[in-house]
Simulated assay, not measured.
Amino acid sequence: MSNRPIYKLVDSKGRVLIPKNLREAAKMEYGDIVRLRVEDGSVSVCKVDIIEAGDQSPEAVEAYVRAAFKSMSDSIRLELIGELSGLLQRKEG
């Protein structure tokens, strides 16, 4: 892979598409957690396996739950889906 810079436009919602070749080089897949950090006016993106301890922001909690769900067996995922569905039904009722 070339080290030439790649330029991307930020869309109206603040999103930037990471090109497939870069995602593959970083071994990023759908549902992976990335850490965004600003240093000296530059934004860095780093794939992480676990979020920093103590970060309980809604975004961090969601990322943790998604990563944990991804690592579970199908039987546990189905069990959790059933429990969450039941909680939603009770909340709506």
Results as ranks from 00 to 15, higher is better:
Gly14Glu: 01
Gly14Leu: 05
Gly14Phe: 05
Arg15Tyr: 08
Arg15Phe: 11
Val16Lys: 07
Leu17Lys: 13
Leu17Ile: 12
Ile18Asp: 05
Ile18Glu: 01
Pro19Ile: 02
Pro19Lys: 02
Leu22Gln: 02
Glu24Thr: 08
Glu24Asn: 12
Glu24Pro: 07
Ala26Asn: 08
Ala26Glu: 12
Ala26Arg: 12
Lys27Asn: 14
Lys27Ala: 05
Lys27Leu: 11
Lys27Cys: 05
Met28Val: 13
Met28Asn: 04
Met28Ile: 14
Tyr30Gly: 07
Gly31Met: 11
Gly31Ile: 12
Ile33Val: 15
Ile33Trp: 08
Ile33Thr: 15
Val34Gly: 00
Leu36Asp: 01
Arg37Tyr: 06
Val38Gln: 05
Glu39Lys: 14
Glu39Ala: 06
Glu39Arg: 13
Asp40Cys: 05
Ser44Tyr: 12
Val45Asn: 00
Val45Lys: 01
Val45Asp: 01
Val45Leu: 03
Cys46His: 10
Cys46Asn: 09
Lys47Gly: 03
Val48Lys: 01
Asp49Pro: 06
Asp49Lys: 12
Asp49Trp: 12
Ile50Asn: 06
Ile51Asp: 00
Glu52Ile: 13
Glu52Pro: 09
Ala53Glu: 11
Gly54Asp: 04
Gly54Val: 10
Gly54Leu: 04
Asp55Arg: 03
Pro58Arg: 08
Ala60Pro: 10
Ala60Met: 04
Ala60His: 05
Val61Tyr: 06
Glu62Lys: 15
Glu62Tyr: 13
Glu62Trp: 13
Ala63Ile: 09
Ala63Pro: 10
Tyr64Lys: 15
Tyr64Glu: 11
Arg66Glu: 09
Ala67Asp: 03
Ala67Ile: 01
Ala68Lys: 15
Ala68Pro: 03
Phe69Val: 10
Lys70Met: 03
Ser71Cys: 04
Ser71Asp: 11
Met72Leu: 12
Ser73Ile: 09
Asp74Ile: 14
Ser75His: 09
Ile76Leu: 10
Arg77Phe: 02
Leu78Ala: 03
Leu80His: 06
Ile81His: 07
Glu83Ala: 14
Glu83Arg: 15
Leu84Pro: 01
Ser85His: 11
Gly86Glu: 15
Leu87Val: 00
Gln89Met: 08
Lys91Phe: 08
Lys91Glu: 03
Lys91His: 07
